[in-house]
Design a protein around this nucleic acid. Structure first.
Lengths: 205, 205, 205, 205
DNA sequence: TATGAATGAGTGTTCATTCAT
DNA sequence: TATGAATGAACACTCATTCAT
């Protein structure tokens, strides 16, 4: 994955802290300004470090945001790994959806940068491989879940349903995160219901 | 709507032509480059006019894109006006959805700038009032349709369902426009099915 | 030659003046700082214009300096054209050398930027095509002169002598321009004498 | 010579090795990139030491390159010392020139950094005292040789001839080092012939 | 003493916007 | 009114140099 996009993999405690600092600042700037309006100088200022330090770790702005995307990707992967360990693929659909959607929504609420990166079909991010990879991961994992559930279905057809479902979720995540706290549960349950009634007839036998 | 964001409402034939020329060029640039990467100079060049002329009609880049959004808004409004005239609100849900979604999808395919503007939760467009207004129009009109269908339901509850449905559609429009021609019909029918099964239980009594 | 290195060929009087202003400022900066230390901002400041204006005419620093080199090249070409019209190739060698060297030395004294660009085997200028072309022009023209003088000699051999002679002159031009006024004539005559005694035995039959 | 430009004269074996390592790396970087494009970090990397260590020995980039120039200077001095011991100043001019030029050419071919430093009238090197001193040494020594040969001549006049001759050689050294191997001998012999015919009439009685 | 992470002034360049013509 | 040359703040990025460890 990353590798040649990272200038130096920090070994020391100090370095790791710095990278975390940078990524955190980048995340906040990304949320506030978006990719194009986020400046590397602002990231540095926010992180309380010098601009040069950013370029010690990332060769350019793109690599910095890519690193952020990959960090999310890694965490999402972890999320799914845990999911797969615990989940019973023979569980009823609503339960499956709970298991798939809840962690994603929780992660999205916790990490607003994730939304800024992921929930967009537009702008330069559209061309960012790391964002595509992230979306692909989510789709692939979900496909796997449903592959266990209805093994008879045509692969590409199953994938089509999931692609549509994932895009819908992608668009609805911001609705959850921007909803007033008292409405959040309702919005979330509605998203799940939408998925459930959409997938029910085609996926279960 | 427009108001103080337009420097001068062109009265003459000539002026109206120029504005159309500018908006057309802006649309194309928006599609090719996105809001941030589209330059006002490129718009002028594409329109075959001078950069100064753009600023004769629009005080800044934002106002130019806002005007584009408002042009879409006006056309969408026309779309719905015609819809309301022809539509039978007592028709079965799938038919209603056809009537609501088909023109929107057709419009989106015909005007790629619409998608660039509308189908994005992100970046400066996020804060653009005109885009919000456009979305609000779509939501309001749809709410009206369903208000006729199930007048007993709580207003805000009905609106919640529609908001969710519209956001889902918003996210899925790009899937239609980027789909291979032979898949387009399938994607479209799936979107409609999703809406149908999502709205059926809550809207019809 | 130039063409795609020039962003816009100024048509108006005003534009031509501006380009001249820029090139003049660039020349002075080049003399004072050398290519690498000359900054485009300093050129703009010296020209009394904004940095943006430079980029209206030249797409980058390199193109600006290239334009300077090409301006010198064009003038040098003019120098040689006049030379060829007036010169008698059957004249004795010392006279030929006078005709060849005097204008070059005069030009170099008048345009210190020429020296900064031309009299260097080093640094990024080494790779600048325009400087190579300039040197090649001087060599080619000189070769032509001597081709008339001793037509029997092997072409490549004649060229070898001229290449050596031109490089020597190139190195000695700065000696002339930095010499104290009262020594200048002496240095110049010595350079010519060196050329004369070097070329005499090989070129004249 | 060195003096306040050197931060610390390394006493120990270890220190002397480090300095040699640094200078060697600096030389290679100088050849590959030129003074302006050579970075101190690249020198450190090439030397396999830390950037800090360079600044332990040299206060800045300039001092580092100056040290290199002085190293060349010292070796050139050694060259001339040996020369003087062996040379017969009453030898015929061509032989004298052989004795003077051959070692210089050999040295230049062996140490490409020498050329990068010495054979340039330009850029920051122009102002580098150490390069001037190096050139002065070569001129002084050559003057001494010819002082023995024609003791009657006016000192300053003799020096003038030598200055011109040395500058010519300076410019022609790169021609030797870049020449194709099969042409190298020819170029070298031509340089010597130029010197010979130039100096013959003025220096020998 | 050696290290190399950290610094930040300075570079080339872009582009929204202005205004003289 | 239309033009497009002119502006200059702002940006991504570099690299000589410092200094805490």
């Amino acid at each position: 994955m990353s590798d040649n996009f990272v200038r130096r993999v920090p070994q020391g405690e100090r370095g790791r802290k710095r990278v975390a600092l940078i990524l955190e600042a980048a995340e906040q700037e990304l949320v506030e300004s978006g990719y194009d309006h986020m400046t590397t100088n602002a990231v540095a200022a926010r992180a309380g470090i010098s601009i040069g330090s950013i370029y010690q770790f990332y060769p350019n702005k793109d690599a910095l945001v890519t690193a952020l995307a990959e960090a999310y990707h890694a965490e999402i992967r972890g999320l799914y790994d845990r999911l797969f360990a615990e989940m019973n693929p023979r569980a009823p659909l609503p339960e499956l959806i709970d298991h798939l959607v809840d962690p994603l929504v929780a992660y999205n609420v916790a990490k607003p940068g994730f939304e800024s990166l992921f929930c967009s079909t537009l702008s330069p991010l559209k061309q960012m491989a790391a964002v595509d990879a992230l979306r692909a991961e989510i789709i692939d994992r979900t496909v796997q879940v449903f592959a266990a559930l209805c093994p008879d279905m045509d692969d590409s057809r199953r994938r089509s349903y999931i692609v549509i479902a994932v895009h819908a979720v992608e668009a609805l995540l911001p609705l959850v995160s921007t909803a007033k706290p008292e409405e959040r549960a309702f919005v979330l349950s509605e998203i799940k219901r939408m998925l459930q009634v959409y997938l029910q007839p085609v996926l279960s036998p």
